[in-house]
Design a protein around this nucleic acid. Structure first.
Length: 235
DNA sequence: GCATTAAAGCCGC
DNA sequence: GCGGCTTTAATGC
């Protein structure tokens, strides 16, 4: 593996205020790893020995109940730190991180965390900005789960996915990584069957177009109406 | 309105 | 061809 170039980290917010020399130091302390899709980078409850920066791909943050049910808390796009247990005052990881696509990940020993925070300008403030955004999103989701019906929850999840990870294609905006009905059901506390029925109905109305593991939103405006409960029900 | 169960079809490796 | 993914329908709370 050749030496990583400084330009890799320059655009990433936690490092954007640093000089090339400092980024060099940081890169020389990092390990790089490529992960296949669907592989755990770390597991909930494990000692938080390292923290990570996602260089490419997507990470799915999930928790598993004692009965084996999986819940997807959040997706993380490239350019963000994850596994930052120390910033949360924890010595173990609070959730499991699984790759939602192929991914390239930088990792550092957690003992460097405090050093990075004190030594590198902007590292802490950018990190807490990211943490704040994640908490905000989870807050929103709690309210949705408690107050909205399934159709609206699924619509909201789809809108979040295309906003955060959408890629423009000919007929709309496609979610940039593979998503199954099961995945969507784990984001919205419903079953894959209900998600399947909703997607089929929306497809007939021209709101989405989907094939196996790929979902494109073709009419985002209409989806916004659906998530507000302002559109005629699909079922 | 939605979960559960069951059954069968389809797609990609 | 097989397993993972998806659809559809029936039933019940």
């Amino acid at each position: 593996m050749s030496r990583l170039d400084e330009s890799l980290l320059t655009p990433m917010p936690p490092f954007s205020r640093l000089e090339k020399r400092q980024i060099r130091e940081i890169l020389d302390l990092a390990s790089v790893r490529r992960f296949d899709e669907g592989v755990a980078v770390f597991e909930e409850g494990a000692p938080a020995e390292r923290f990570y920066m996602l260089l490419d791909g997507y990470i799915r943050v999930m928790r598993i109940t004692p009965t084996g049910e999986q819940v997807i808390a959040l997706h993380i796009p490239s350019g963000q730190l994850f596994g930052i247990a120390q910033a949360l005052g924890r010595t173990t990881y609070p959730a499991t991180s699984v790759t939602a696509s192929e991914a390239i990940v930088l990792g550092w020993p957690m003992r460097l965390w405090d050093q990075f925070v004190s030594q590198y300008d902007g590292f802490a403030s950018e990190t807490y900005k990211t943490v704040g955004q994640r908490i905000g999103e989870m807050n929103t989701r709690i309210v949705e789960m408690a107050t909205q019906q399934v159709e609206q929850r699924v619509a909201n999840s789809l809108l979040r996915l295309i906003n955060q990870t959408g890629r423009k294609v000919e007929n709309g905006i496609e979610i940039d990584f593979p998503v199954t009905r099961q995945d969507l059901s784990e984001m919205t506390a419903t079953t894959l069957h209900t998600v399947s029925r909703l997607l089929s109905a929306w497809e007939k109305q021209g709101v989405v177009a989907s094939r196996r593991k790929r979902i494109t939103v073709t009419d985002a405006h209409r989806l916004v109406l659906i998530c507000r409960g302002e559109a005629p029900p699909s079922r």
